[in-house]
């Protein structure tokens, strides 16, 4: 008889997981964690960013554990994050001191420090390379490393921001230095109106697809005018924690790869115009997300009738875990509430 609905849950779940493991295996060939970490690095970056945990190895493990599902990988890293005790807070990172690997400006041809194209898919033709399966990874890598080894290293010079020059000219609004501790969205609930620190944290961890779509809507007409990417920089920043025995000293604990963007929009300044800046910063190389974040930051500051200008709408609906969790819960049984719904419908028809 089948009338004991969804019982035997335990056996069913065990069998389901066994089948899942078989799907996950997929083939007799294995994929090494090191390969995922380094060959799927943009996926790794995205997972780390949306999870809010910078660990390439664990991100690669998570990706392998879930057949490369973006939402599941983020989920795994986030859940792991909950078990970790927070021991230290890093000192504020000054991204002007970034060791830059790529830097472009869509606002000015020549910028102090220069434009550095770096590695980018922007100018590739998206033609499937059918020879890729014959590629010899080790040889290729050695070739490039040999070439680089033969070159004379250049002195690393720090690049001032593009916005610094405009700020000197008084075209960009000056904000007072704000050193109050940031609102930590992982430790307390978001409240509205939200601090800018809470907004930027939420956007930095948001689902890339969600915020890219929102930013696109703002560019297309459901927002202000088309912004200009003043500067996009990608590079490494050093993380330091205060030395416990001497507040003046700090200890270097490692570096993270960031993409940072400043966008410019025209904005009212009483009788005249000024430039307003939108800011975006994300883990790893994820330029579309960083730009989208900057666009949305600016839209939220501006306010207005469109979805991207509504703080609660933007900040409450972009978290990968929250959106995917709540949507997937629709697959759970709703027998009791549906019975109640039926009862309410039937009563009005009696």
């Amino acid at each position: 008889m089948t009338y004991v609905a969804v019982s035997g849950g335990k056996e069913a779940i065990e069998a389901s997981i066994k089948l899942l493991d078989f799907y996950k295996g997929g083939t007799e060939k294995d994929v090494e964690i090191e390969a995922i970490e380094n060959k799927l690095s943009l996926l790794v970056d995205r997972v780390m960013g949306e999870a809010g945990l910078y660990s390439k190895t664990y991100a690669a493990l998570a990706i392998k554990q879930c057949e490369g599902s973006m939402e599941e990988a983020v989920f795994l890293l986030r859940a792991y994050r909950s078990t970790l005790t927070r021991n230290y807070y890093t000192n504020v990172v000054n991204t002007s001191e970034m060791r830059i690997v790529r830097r472009i400006s869509a606002a000015f041809k020549d910028i102090i420090g220069g434009q550095i194209l770096g590695a980018s898919y922007d100018y590739t033709h998206r033609l499937i390379n059918f020879d890729l399966d014959k590629e010899k990874a080790a040889e290729l890598r050695r070739e490039v490393l040999d070439m680089l080894g033969a070159q004379e290293p250049e002195e690393i010079s720090l690049c001032p921001r593009v916005s610094d020059e405009l700020r000197k000219e008084g075209l960009i609004e000056q904000y007072a230095q704000d050193d109050k501790p940031p609102h930590d969205v992982t430790m307390s609930m978001l409240e509205f109106p939200a601090d800018r620190s809470a907004r930027l944290q939420t956007l930095a961890r948001a689902d890339t697809g969600f915020i890219s779509g929102l930013a696109y809507s703002a560019l297309r007409g459901f927002g202000q005018e088309h912004p200009t990417v003043g500067e996009l920089r990608c590079g490494y920043v050093e993380l330091c924690v205060p030395y416990p025995l001497d507040e003046q000293e700090e200890i270097y604990i490692g570096e993270v790869l960031l993409t940072e963007v400043e966008c410019f929009n025209k904005a009212d300044d009483k009788e005249q115009l000024k430039l307003a800046v939108g800011y975006g910063a994300v883990f790893g190389r994820n330029e579309t997300k960083a730009i989208s974040m900057a666009v949305i930051d600016r839209e939220l500051d501006h306010g207005g009738p469109y979805p991207t200008q509504n703080e609660e709408f933007v900040l409450m609906h972009g978290d990968s875990l929250e959106m995917n969790g709540f949507i997937s819960h629709l697959k759970l049984p709703h027998y009791v509430t549906f019975q109640s719904k039926l009862d309410a419908v039937r009563k009005t028809r009696a």
Binding site: F75, L76, R78, A79, R81, S82, D184, T186, M187, S188, M189, E191, L321, E322, N324, G325, F326, I327, S328, H329, L332
Partner: peptide, 16 residues
């Protein structure tokens, strides 16, 4: 009462 809800190995929306 609002609280700093932690992520769990079970989906948000599934009883966390």
């Amino acid at each position: 009462v609002s609280f700093g809800s932690r992520e769990l190995p079970i989906g948000r929306g599934w009883g966390t």
